[in-house]
Every structure is written in C-alpha cells, then in structure tokens.
Design a protein around this nucleic acid. Structure first.
Lengths: 299, 299
DNA sequence: GTAATAGTGTCTTTCAGACAGTATGAC
DNA sequence: GTCATACTGTCTGAAAGACACTATTAC
C-alpha cells in the first residue's frame, strides 16, 4: 500500500448509458455531439454511485432507478487530447424519460442497427455487413488466421436465424470495428450506424450486452416500466431490449411460474380489442430469489 | 468532456484476488499483513489489465491466466490515512501456484469459513452465526425493520440445506458485517474468520460470488486445472469453488453433453483404484458457445 | 479374494417449446 | 355480426434428478 513515485494520479470521468423504453423502443440519453452524458467525479461525493446520481439529477434526467457499474477503462489515447484519463462506465435504467437542457433521447438501434431482429434479420446484414466481413476475412494473412476469422464471423452473424445470439453485442461491435466497418469519433465515412464520439459507442455495446444478459436472470425490466403495466407491455419491453420477438404464451407462463407480477384488479380502457389486466411487479421476489438458478447437480 | 476545477485527480490502486486450486482446496495469494496483493497503476502501461499482468509477473505469481475486472471503488476513508483513492478490484485465475517473496497462498475458506458446505453445513453457522443474527434482528427498531431483517437472514442462511444459495457470498458478508460479526482492518475481536486489512475481505467475497456464478455458464474452471486432468479432478475443483458436493453421474453427463472435454488417450497410474482417463479442455467451445443459453422463449 | 475408485445404463419427473382454441371489448 | 386483442388448455419432447449396476486397478 506504499505510494511510489510513478503512481499515476489521473482525473476520473463518469460515462453513463441511461436507458428508457417508450412505445416499445429503447432510447439512451445523449449529450453534446451525440455522445454519452459524461462528467467528472467530484471530490464532494462519498461514493462513485452517489456522484453519478447527483450529477444525473443535476443534468435533469430524473432520479436514476437501477444503476450498475459496467467497466473501468484507463487506456492511453482514449480522449482526443491524448492525455490519459480513467473512465468508469455505468448502466442506468429509468422509466420516465424527460429531457434536460442539451440532452436528447436517441433510439439505441440507430447506433447499432444490426442488433434489432424484431422484424427478421435486418437487411443491412445481408447487404453490407456480410460482404464486407467476407472481404476482410480474405485479406487475412495465412490460412489459420483466415479460418479463425471465418469462425468468428459465423458465431457473431450466423446464417441460421435461430442461432442468433442476442448477447454477443460487444463481440459483434469489435468484429465490425476490426473490419473497419464502424468508425469511432466522428469519422463517419460509409460506416454502419450512427457514430458516437470517442469510445462511447463501444460503451453502449457493452451496456447493451450486459442488459440483455441480465434480463434473463434478474428482474430488472421492471425498472423501465411504469408501476402498472399489461403483460403485453412487459413483453414488448423485453423484446425491445433483446431485439427479438418472443413467444407470447410461453413468455406469460414464464412470468407466471416465476411469480414476478401480481394483478392490481384494474384493466386498460379505450384501446381497441379486449381490455388487458394491469399488473404490478412483486417486489418481494427481489429478496426471495436474490439469485435464481443453480446449474450444478448437487448431491 | 470539459475539465472542471473540482475534478478529483486521485491515485489508482489495483487489488487482485489471485486464485489457485490445489488438492481440492482453493487458495488466494496474500501479500503483506494477510492482505490482497495490491499495487499502484503505473503510467507506463497501456491498459489496466496490462498493468495488472506486468505487476503480477514482477511479484512472482506466474503469468495470470483468466483475468476479470470486478469493481471500482472510490469511497472516502477506504485507506487508513483517510485520503481518498480509487481501487480497482480484479479476479485472476492461475493453475500453477508458486509463491514469490513476501507472498503466501492462503485457503480462502479461512477468511470466509461459513461458505464451505462440502462437509455439510459448517458448525459455525448453528453455533455462532444464527444466534448472533437472531440477536441483531431483535435489536431492530420497529416491526417492519425486524421483519426485513428476518427475511434477509432466512435467504442468506436458510434452515433447509437444500435452499442454500452458493452465490450469495456478498450478501452474507454484508449481513454479517452489519450485524458486527466480521471485522475489517485487523480489529479481529471475536469475529468470524480470518480478517484482512482494509476492505480486502469484502473484495474477496465479491470475487467468490462472481466466480461461483461464472462457473455455471462459462468454462472458466479449466483455467485452474493443469492441461490434462481426470473428471474427478474437474469435479473436485468445481466443488471447491462452489463449496458444495456435486452428484457424480449427473455432473459427468453435464460435462459430456456440453462437450467441454476430450479424451487424451492417457490414463492415471499408481493410485489405488481403477486408473482414470485423462481429459483436456476442448478450447473450441470458447468460440462455439461464446454465450450459452438464452432463457427467453423466442417466437 | 477385498478395497477403492472409474465409468455405464436407465427410470422418472419436471419443464421448455409449440399447437389450437375461447373470451371480451370497440365498431 | 366483424375485427382486434386478451387469455386458457393441452400435447410433446428434451433435460434434470436419482437410482442401481459393471469395470479395472492395487494389495
């Protein structure tokens, strides 16, 4: 615990991927230049998370609900000036998306359009991505490297739709980045998707991957929903995050057997079609199953 | 991305939980004063992970295998001096445990003895923990708080052994900490388990929780094993990490159906009993199933 | 032979995936 | 009545959990 001379003292920067879902579309809050809202960690705060919350409140994004640390980067050359800084990425979920001055809600699939498979495989994959990746594969030096690239491509962008893995967001982003298909820091060229400054789009990919994995074993979706919701709203929100269409009946059975929700007695009115029951999240499950399933065969 | 005046520039400290398993017992590398090996992040390195690897190599702990970032803390008063520092926790797995100068391998269940359920529920739970937690519960002010405490206790330390959740390491540690049963920073008192300096035992609990969760869906156990191993060795290693006894036949079926290993042709010699086949990890699965199971019912 | 550990075969229960069908509103 | 959406019942096949059994070594 001794302090040495070359101990690097550096500024800390917080970057937050603040997510909201409205009308079945996921959005993220962006600040100046389409970038993630980011700011310095100030000495006044006791913990990083408190610093983030206070700073988000000041920025106008209502009280953050669920907050999770993503990753800490400390690479040189992260920022434009070339000076080193430490950047701590956060994922935050809110359910009321109002904008503050200088911020906008941006649909996250605008930045990563190949991730949305709700209406089948996006055209962009067959039209732009696969040909470009094939070319990149063929540029490889050596047969081994060529095979390795082919395998990575096959896993990230499988030809069979049923093999699409929604959690591989970061792997796909890095693959496209290596192949020169996505640009960072404004150099848009003919790149795919809307770029973001610095490495912010990579942080978004990290957040999306984490969130898609998390909704499968922790009830965090409810942080994105109002206190009362219909089962269809719940399903649509999950579909929006996963970028996949789900099987209605089986989804409902899943929700029911896990006892995630309870009826409120109220129903929707006015819409066309049969009115839907309104449900609320059973907060108790947060304690009941702090972690869900062991996959190990106990003796 | 503007630098403000109260932007806190602080030193970065790396803390690593370096894990090895020998003879079915998990160990962690400890430095001075039974603490985690820790050191400053030096300006010479390109990334945090590279800094960690270089520094671990210099400390003598052979090349780190699997490395994973755990969490970044920046609380005030973390260190003894009261000055703030940022601490980044890492989990690293190695399979050859040799010691460097000034370091020792310490069995991790010495620090968290209530986590080892391989020989049934540890005595310490019935003898010390449950009575003390009951007393702590009764000290609560108000019936609601009392009920909340009772519920937390019931989940963290269930009376039915079959309900024991091996992943709740951190929840249990924090529960015991709130109840004053584990001491930090040397004030051993009549606390449970071997203390570690600063918040290092909490970081160990975080690492254990992460590792126990991870082995269930990612093949990281193999980072702790030699290149060739028997199925029993594999099972014993998983049991050591999970702190649970597993069902032999079903464990083997799991390993087989997931095609995690392949026969090498060699067998063990000299031990009593039938010789066991030696297996090696099928590295291909790392690519095949970069992520394993979707739990969502796709349409 | 016995003791000790390695490995196989199979039964049962539970749960995920898929099907078709009925209910209740707006118009 | 039609249309649109909400909800229910049930079949099937694949795993998870648990049982008993055979195999190969050292002594």
């Amino acid at each position: 615990m001794t302090r040495t001379a070359n101990n690097a003292a550096v500024p800390i920067e917080l970057n937050a991927v603040i997510v909201a879902v409205a009308d079945g579309e996921p959005y993220l809050l962006t600040g100046e230049g389409q970038g993630l809202p980011s700011g310095p960690f100030e000495s006044g705060h006791r913990t990083l998370e408190q610093g983030l919350r206070a700073w988000a409140r000041r920025k106008g994004a209502r009280n953050l609900g669920y907050v999770e640390q993503l990753y800490t980067f400390a690479d040189v050359g992260r920022t434009s000036a070339g000076c080193r800084s430490v950047s701590i990425g956060y994922l935050a979920l809110v359910h009321d998306g109002d904008e503050a001055l200088g911020t906008t809600w941006s649909p996250w699939y605008k930045h990563l359009p190949w991730e949305d498979h709700r209406d089948g495989k996006p055209r962009i994959i067959a039209q732009s991505i696969m040909p470009a990746l094939a070319a990149w594969k063929n540029k490889a030096s050596g047969a081994a490297e060529k095979r390795a690239r082919a395998e990575r491509i096959g896993i990230a962008f499988p030809s069979d739709v049923r093999q699409w893995n929604d959690e591989l967001v970061l792997q796909r982003y890095e693959l496209l980045w290596e192949a020169g298909l996505v640009a960072e820091a404004g150099r848009a060229k003919n790149g795919l998707g809307l770029p973001m400054p610095y490495d912010h789009r990579r942080i978004l990919a990290t957040a999306m991957a984490r969130l898609r994995a998390k909704i499968k074993y922790r009830p965090v979706v409810f942080e994105l929903l109002p206190p009362q919701f219909t089962l269809l709203q719940l399903q649509t929100t999950v579909e929006a995050l996963a970028g996949l269409r789900l099987h209605k009946q089986n989804f409902r059975r899943l929700v029911e057997t896990q006892r995630l929700v309870e009826e409120t007695g109220a129903v929707t009115r006015g819409a066309s079609g049969r009115p839907a029951k309104l449900f609320s999240f059973r907060r108790k499950v947060l304690q009941e199953r702090a972690a869900a399933g062991t996959k190990l065969p106990r003796s």
